[in-house]
Amino acid sequence: MRTTTLALFLTTLAVPALAADDPYKVKLLLGGGYQLGGSDFDQTFSFPQYQENATVNAAYDADKAPGLDVGIQWNAFRSIGFSLGGTLYDRDLTGTFDASFPHPFFFNQPRTATGDVTGKMKETAGHLNLVFFGKSGNLDLSAWGGVSIFKVQADILSTVAYSQTYPYDTVTVTSAPTGKGEDTPLGFNVGASVDYRFSKSIGFGIQGRFARAKAKLALGENPEVEVDAGGLQVGGGLRIYF
């Protein structure tokens, strides 16, 4: 069955289908998705202290997460249309850091410390796509590709605070405050969906999308943090046809 469906779908892509019995001009997609795969990124920053530089290296891991996936598709031509979509994924972010703080009395005798950092990484994206669509019975088949604009916000370290007491040979991390590092990079997305129409105006569909953008998160005066936004997303939801 899966093979047959796939064959039909590919055929549809290669040769746009004839006009359907119940053609529609506009399709709304209301659903959810799941971002597969984690996203790892690193952060390094330093700041002057005691005539040397303190350095902090952090490694983050954004978990897989469910999200919102909505859109609207306008079938402008016989088998070609346009779509505007939006996705929102709010992912848990965990990480660890190691820091090196200069000694107040001696050069080249840094004190080191490690710790954990937690927060959120929120990816909101808008997708403008060219859509190829077709039909096979009650199945609507679509494939698309286009540009995406992301807004990426992640809780990344703004500094690492520590306490120290004489003779200052060790430090104790007291807090690792985070701030929202953010960027709005341009990227791309490609994907495909299969919808089943229950009636003239209602259906249900599943889709898969791969979206990607390189975000450079800025926070204060710290160096930008490069993050791969997006990834493979699968989902499904309600389809409303007009």
């Binding site: 506009v26 709304l28 919102l68 909505v70 859109g71 609207i72 505007l84 979509g85 939006g86 929102l88 909101t124 994206a125 808008g126 997708h127 604009i149 807004k151 916000q153 929202k180 953010e182 709005t184 409303i240 007009f242």
Partner: peptide, 24 residues
């Protein structure tokens, strides 16, 4: 497009729009 459709469209456009979160 009906009034209901217009409201839906408005909702979707809002949902897809990038949120302008308050930034300190």
């Amino acid at each position: 497009m009906s009034a209901r459709s217009s409201r839906l469209m408005a909702f979707l456009v809002l949902a897809a729009a990038l949120p302008a979160l308050a930034q300190g």
